[in-house]
């Protein structure tokens, strides 16, 4: 029983709200420090790439953003599945919060990829397999957000978008494999886009720092979005009314 207690508690919006209150400053501090550290390290102290020169420094943003964009989709889908299976209110709140964050990170990975492409391949947009897959991932995110927003009933919005997220989860590997296959079929011989063979440790460590920074940043932002959404949904409950009265006393 006690092993499952945390799970039941996690299902309570109030418990989540107060529990995470203390985490926010710590997460903000750690992710802020790591982001600054990784950025300075990557921009100024990591050696330039012998082929790409300094433009490769975009990798310190592009790879972590793409990483979290993909993981964010699974966070969203798993939260949706938990909500569907155990009828857990909080899981749906997390699912809804994860969608815009994931979409923003997907957008970032596309934009940084495009800007990186210009000095490297001489073009802003290349129908590379990974870029195309990321673009489709963005469409999936946007579809889920649009479906969530379209329903009047919150319950139906949560369940429908969770189901769509699950359908997307089944489809992502298929889409990824198909796009990969399509790309090898059409890859022009002059462009060799499969980069990143072995990465030297002097470049790897700042990258790992940035990936860790993005992970913690993702957790922070997910918690912030979830807390705001909790307040919206629980607006008429006694604990939120107490909380609001408490806030009113503050200057």
């Amino acid at each position: 029983m006690s092993n499952w207690q945390w799970f039941h508690r996690l299902g309570s919006p109030r418990w989540f709200y107060y529990k995470t209150e203390g985490w926010v400053p710590w997460l903000a501090a750690v992710s802020g420090i790591l982001l600054v550290l990784g950025t300075v390290w990557g921009l100024a102290f990591a050696p330039p790439d012998y082929q790409q020169g300094n433009s490769y420094r975009i990798i310190y943003l592009h790879v972590p953003a793409a990483f979290l964009a993909l993981i964010g989709y699974y966070v969203m889908a798993v939260a949706g599945a938990v909500g569907m299976i155990w009828r857990m209110k909080m899981a749906f709140v997390v699912m809804k919060s994860a969608a815009p964050i994931g979409a923003a990170l997907t957008f970032l990975s596309l934009v940084t990829g495009a800007i990186w492409g210009k000095p490297t391949w001489g073009t802003w947009w290349e129908w590379d397999a990974r870029i195309t897959s990321m673009l489709i991932l963005l469409f999936l995110y946007l579809g889920i957000m649009a479906l969530q927003a379209a329903f009047q009933s919150r319950d139906a919005a949560d369940k429908a978008s969770a189901l769509l997220a699950l359908i997307g989860t089944v489809n992502i590997p298929i889409i990824y494999k198909s796009v990969d296959w399509w790309h090898t079929l059409h890859q022009p011989a002059t462009l060799k886009l499969t980069s990143a063979p072995t990465i030297h440790s002097s470049m790897l460590y700042p990258l790992l720092t940035m990936i860790l920074a993005f992970y913690i940043f993702y957790a922070l932002v997910l918690i912030l979005y979830t807390r705001a959404e909790i307040l919206r949904r629980e607006g008429r409950t006694q604990w939120v009314i107490d909380l609001v009265k408490e806030e009113a006393k503050k200057p």
């Binding site: 489709i136 469409f139 999936l140 946007l142 579809g143 889920i144 649009a146 479906l147 379209a150 769509l164 359908i167 997307g168 489809n171 298929i174 889409i175 494999k177 198909s178 796009v179």
Partner: peptide, 12 residues
């Protein structure tokens, strides 16, 4: 909306 959510799934 239907087109928006279905089209990505049609890609493969």
């Amino acid at each position: 909306l239907l087109s928006l959510i279905v089209m990505p799934l049609y890609i493969p």
